[in-house]
């Protein structure tokens, strides 16, 4: 079989296909679905970005305020050692460790809460069920 015969094999190849209009209609529906998903993804990214920014600001402020309170907290912890018990002595020895752990926990919890509350608030604001009240 020479080259021309191979080419002519497919030149005359005209299989039955579904109507072009039906194919394009299905494609347009699929593209519409893609657009909806893309729009939703962009919206979710925007909401997440806003929540992260608010959480970061909250974390920064809480961390800063807690750091300012550190000397006062350390003084309070050291005053506990006056009682002379073994527990009090232990608390006093590791006072700074406990205070910084407390500050980190507090900052982390408040940061996460700020993130969660911001996301929930945005979802509620965009939900027609809540806007109709």
């Amino acid at each position: 079989m020479n080259e021309d015969k191979y080419t002519s094999l497919f030149d005359n190849f005209n299989p039955d296909m579904s109507p072009d209009s039906l194919f394009i209609h299905c494609l347009e529906q699929n593209l519409q679905a893609v657009e909806i998903v893309k729009k939703h993804t962009v919206e979710m990214q925007r909401r997440n970005r806003k929540a992260i920014i608010i959480a970061a600001i909250t974390g920064f402020i809480v961390g800063l305020l807690s750091s300012f309170c550190y000397p006062f907290l350390l003084k309070t912890i050291n005053s506990i050692a006056i009682s002379g018990t073994a527990f009090a002595t232990h608390i006093s020895d590791y006072g700074s460790v406990y205070i910084w752990t407390l500050i980190c926990l507090l900052t982390g919890i408040l940061t996460y809460s700020a993130y969660d509350l911001t996301l929930s608030a945005q979802t509620t604001a965009n939900n027609p069920k809540y806007n109709d009240r």
Binding site: F13, N14, P15, M17, D20, F23, I24, L27, E28, L31
Partner: peptide, 16 residues
């Protein structure tokens, strides 16, 4: 969509 309208038959023929 305009591109698809003019080329979809060839692509479908290839895939068939």
């Amino acid at each position: 969509i305009r591109y698809v309208e003019s080329n979809q038959r060839a692509v479908r023929r290839f895939l068939i």
